[in-house]
Design a protein around this nucleic acid. Structure first.
Length: 619
DNA sequence: GTAGGGTTAG
């Protein structure tokens, strides 16, 4: 018999509360599973004359304010009927406000609590400090800090941890540190909060120093730092920390697994990624939605689109990020139609797309030259989903139109943007000017872009290429001078190929490789073979790299060609060649790669700084 | 009541 039935079967008189039924009433409220049950009990409570009893009403408020099936509005109404609410009740309503993202109301209630002379306790401070964080209430936060001391909680670890957290949230790292330093007793949360605080705000080295002085480290604190290194793109250091963590026999849990998978993604380190994945499987770590999304991203960005799709389709529960990631993955691999199809499936499954979904869909259209589709979705996102285009959406459209040669439309769209175009939007247009040889517009945009982004060597190179293709070598020379004067270093292009776990890197025209002679012989043979298959060098991009020594044979020995020659030398017939390049693949290399894939009957997958190119049988 | 993980155009 449930306690609910027990109550309904028992007759009560509203005028004579039967006090020994309290515990049952309390239990009944706590076992409610929805609001209508709760309301029934609440009316019983009123009938029993218990509505002024804080123990009973505390339970009612707790259910309404913070439980999963509660109702904050009802909690507030009930709260207003209580003559002398105690600290528990205040705390609970404050938590309710916080859960429902009304931090200002939470702070206000805290003030009301003090005005009514109800003393805050150790449960009050974490809550109100959290509200200060979310409500961006810096001054109030400082005052609450004073209250923590004044009301006698200056050695309560949880309260102090929350103070550290609040100061970290406001980027007051010095204050956070002061609280931490003055603590007589610290727990692992104190350490982790401070360390991840430093890490989150980019002070990774301070974070490491604190970690070094920590007595015992668990996986949470290791991960706080590993994740920070990954976010700061310091992947090798993330690996170093990971090794140290394992040396201390701290077990790899799903959070660390996710961070390390991201590190693998950043490095394109597929083998290590697969190692972590197999660890996940072997140790029964649950592949939840977030972790699976990380795996999908890893496979996409390491060039294994098929594997990514397998993981994606096996996922029982997909969040919007999982869809975005997979759509973006398909886009990145030039599979525009498949990306759009997946987007349509997402809509059929009634998953609400967000702005990132549309960045990826538009990008898919751009990579695959689907101009009309792109224009359609650009309107569709606002009209159907009410998502206003942001800069990045305009950037996608400028890129899409520009690549298709619709430079005037691209420029018009850029002028119509409600926000000022940033370097990336201008960069998209400049790239299009170079592809389509529009010198006039290119010069205009290029100059603007260099002013906006003066330390990015790629911008100079792009404009220089535009000048060079127009034969304006004087302008090329002036640009190079400008770069030198400003100390802007050109980013050297290199390609890498991984063979048997060893990374082999190649610089354009480089001759210092131990097997240089062999590689160049193979490269020459390779070029000879494709020439007889119809290869004509595309010389307009000769100035892709502004280096003097590359003028001799600039195209023939671009780094990806060397990596390909090396790959052909060192792998068996039929093996896929996977090459990574730090810059964009130039048009000549693109053409050459197609022919090499045919002549040598090899699938070649080149990852450049933006996307993957698949070459198979000259396509 | 407090600490750690996912997707972002060129």
């Amino acid at each position: 018999m449930s306690s609910l039935q027990l109550f309904q079967a028992t007759p009560f008189s509203a005028t004579s509360p039967i006090t020994h039924y309290w515990p049952l009433q309390l239990q009944a409220v706590e076992s409610c599973s929805n609001m209508s049950e709760l309301k029934q009990h609440h009316s019983q409570i009123i009938k029993l004359g218990l509505s002024t009893n804080n123990d009973v009403m505390g339970r009612v408020i707790k259910f309404c304010a913070v439980s999963k099936h509660g109702d904050l509005g009802y909690a507030l109404k009930a709260f207003d009927t209580i003559p002398q609410p105690d600290a528990f009740i205040y705390n609970t309503v404050m938590r309710g406000y916080l859960h429902c993202r009304f931090p200002r109301n939470c702070i206000h209630l805290y003030i009301q609590m003090l005005e009514n002379s109800v003393l805050p306790n150790n449960f009050t401070f974490p809550c109100v400090l959290g509200a200060c964080c979310h409500g961006n209430a810096v001054e109030q936060g400082r005052q609450v800090h004073a209250h923590v001391l004044k009301f006698g909680y200056s050695s309560h670890v949880v309260c102090l941890n929350n103070l550290i957290h609040m100061y970290v949230n406001f980027e007051f790292l010095g204050e956070a540190r002061r609280v931490f330093d003055r603590m007589l007793k610290r727990d692992v949360v104190s350490w982790t909060t401070l360390i991840s605080g430093y890490a989150q705000w980019g002070c990774v080295d301070e974070a490491l120093t604190v970690l070094e002085s920590m007595p015992e480290r668990n996986s949470v604190v290791w991960n706080a730092l590993i994740a920070a290194y990954v976010q700061n793109k310091r992947f090798h250091e993330a690996f170093d920390l990971f090794d140290r963590m394992r040396a201390e026999n701290v077990v790899l849990d799903k959070f660390v697994a996710a961070s390390m998978l991201s590190a693998c993604t950043g490095l394109g380190a597929l083998e290590q990624g697969i190692w972590i994945l197999s660890y996940i499987e072997k140790n029964g770590i649950e592949l939840d939605t977030k972790l699976a999304t990380t795996v999908i991203d890893m496979y996409c960005k390491c060039g294994f689109l098929q594997k990514a799709l397998e993981v994606f389709h096996r996922l029982p529960c997909r969040g919007v990020s999982s869809w975005n990631c997979m759509i973006g993955g398909l886009a990145m691999h030039g599979k525009g139609e498949a990306a759009i199809e997946l987007f349509m499936e997402m809509e059929r499954k009634a998953v609400a797309p967000d702005n990132l979904t549309f960045v990826n869909v538009l990008n898919a259209c751009a990579h695959s030259g689907l101009v009309e589709e792109g224009q359609y979705y650009f309107q569709y996102m606002t009209e159907v989903h009410g998502i206003d285009p942001r800069r990045e959406h305009y950037g996608c459209m400028v890129n899409l139109l520009g690549r298709a040669g619709m430079l005037e439309e691209a420029r018009k769209l850029m002028d119509e943007m409600p926000m000022s175009p940033d370097a990336s939007v201008l960069g998209a247009l400049l790239g299009a000017c170079r592809i389509h040889g529009n010198i006039e517009l290119g010069e205009q945009i290029g100059k603007k872009l260099i002013d906006l982004d003066p330390n990015n060597s790629g911008r100079y190179v792009l404009l220089a290429n535009i000048y060079a293709s127009a034969g304006k070598f004087e302008d090329v020379a002036n640009l190079r001078k400008l770069m030198n004067n400003r100390g802007v270093k050109k980013c050297p292009g290199f390609s890498a190929i991984v063979l048997k776990g060893v990374v082999h890197e190649f610089l354009a025209g480089e001759e210092t490789h131990p097997q240089a002679k062999e590689i160049y012989t193979k490269a020459n043979e390779m070029l000879e073979c494709i020439r007889s298959a119809g290869y004509v060098p595309c010389t307009e991009e000769v100035l892709q790299d502004l280096e003097e020594e590359e003028k001799e044979n600039p195209l023939y020995y671009h780094s990806e060609k060397l990596a390909m020659a090396f790959g052909l030398l060192k792998t068996n017939p039929g093996e896929i060649l996977r090459i990574t390049k730090n810059l964009r693949v130039c048009r000549d290399c693109h053409q050459a790669s197609k022919l090499i894939s045919k002549v040598y009957d090899r699938e070649i997958i080149v990852r450049d700084r933006n996307r993957f190119h698949h070459f198979k049988n000259a396509l």
